[in-house]
Write a protein that binds this DNA or RNA. Structure first.
Length: 114
RNA sequence: CGAGGUGAACAGGCGAUCGCGUGGCUUCGGAAGAGCCAUGAGGAAAGUCCGGGCACCGCAGAGCAAGGGUGCCGGCUAACGGCCGGCGGAGGCGACUCCAGGGAGAGUGCAACAGAAAUAAACCGCCCGGAUCCCCAGCGGGAGCCAGGUAAGGAUGGAAAGGCGAGGCAAGAGCUCACCCGCGGGACUGGUAACUUUUCCGCGCUGUAAACCCCACCCGGUGCAAGAUGCAGGAGGUACGUCGGCUGCUCGUCGCAAUCCUCCGGGAUCGCUGGAGCCAUCCGGUAACGGAUGGCCUGGAUAGAUGAUCGCCCAGAACAGAACCCGGCUUAUGGUCACGCUCGCAUU
RNA sequence: GUGGGUAUAGCGUAGUUGGUUAACGCGUCAGAUUGUGGCUCUGAAGAUCGUGGGUUCGAGUCCCACUACUCACC
């Protein structure tokens, strides 16, 4: 997942928290605010685990989101990991991401990745 | 075989597909993009407990105070509160391990409860003497009182004025003597030294300095969000003093203004990784370590790069992620190996 | 990155220069009162003083290391 698609500044995160719509499941929360460019940010707090665990969760989430980059409506996404995400497998995270994208109605019509 | 002790290296490997950071090359007028190649977390990267480098501030620089730290000896080191080797003490049957280990003979404080008494002592007891009273024919005996002597004995306590024996005494006492114990000093043996061997003299002194303190030595402050250079912007200030110049005081010194000063906050580039570096051999040293020669280049991100899936080996395996960089310490943690190390059991 | 603070009964807090039994309130339990409950009164239980070492005769207190939580600044 390339850097140009990444959400970086704290202000951008604050914007999404204020304006975005949220959808949640057991391990994840997804916020989405429509916009012109496509950027994705990940938020993993210290409650999830130590630095190694947090990095691993972020990597997995990035890998989960990568296949949908071309198939998703433009805007700012923030994915928040809950503490239970540390124990989740890659497959279950991937299922959760797809479920949340559908719930947000963010997938482009007729171009769904299966 | 079991239970230990010490030390050492390693930190899953290989292959396939997709994906990421950095550097180089090619494509291209250039950028973007694409392709290829190389490379890409640790022994603790952690905790932030110490020591430095580096940067800025103070800055010709200096002194004092305050505060903090260290504390057997010698060596190593850039330095250290670290390491190595000794000494002393403590623990363990032993291999071996652990120790903030200067000064209580400079002063102050504290030592609850118990106990007669807690750093110094006469409550009981023991003993001499005095007057009074009682018993007795008398010798004499007894009772409490007064004034002294005495630390041998007395339920305590962590600690009770060295221990034991003999002499001595009215009763006693290192009061005296022999032996032993401890402390201080001198000489001597060995050692660079801490210390130690032997001996002589003096003394018998409570413990606590991780209580205040004394002595010796060390420490200026702030930290890469340091700081430097560009870009764009906002707010405020007003003249020799009662100003300002990152800690207190004293000296010293500098500045005196709008093209300046102070403050605020946004973004970019640099700082940014080749270094007290790593590996091998030889030499010196008990060792820590040092020297010589040869070889190697080995992360540099900036919401933060190592992942996902599968196969084989295999017991699917712990603690855990660089953020300026090094040297230590401490803590967390997986299995492996070595020992001409120890103890126990069994067999020969 | 740097520098502080806190940890004591189920909960919230005391604990003064080390000294015997760690105090208080709420809560809990038992009893009394009441026809029953509450209020009230009486009594009781409940603490590895965050963990592990050390100094000391003696540690909640002093020293060291660690753990968790929390605050401040840039």
């Amino acid at each position: 997942m390339e850097r140009q698609y990444r959400l970086k500044k704290n202000r951008a995160f604050q914007y999404v928290y204020r304006r975005g719509h949220s959808a949640a499941c057991r391990d994840l929360v997804m916020l989405f605010a429509r916009g012109r460019e496509l950027k994705v940010g990940f938020s993993v707090s210290k409650k999830v685990g130590n630095a190694v665990i947090r990095n691993k969760v972020k990597r997995r989430l990035r890998e989960c989101f990568r296949p949908y980059l071309g198939d998703v409506k433009t805007g700012l996404y923030v994915i928040v990991a809950r503490p239970s995400a540390a124990k989740a497998t890659f497959q279950s995270l991937q299922k959760d991401v797809r479920y949340l994208l559908k719930k947000q109605d963010a997938l482009k019509e007729g171009n769904r990745a299966e």
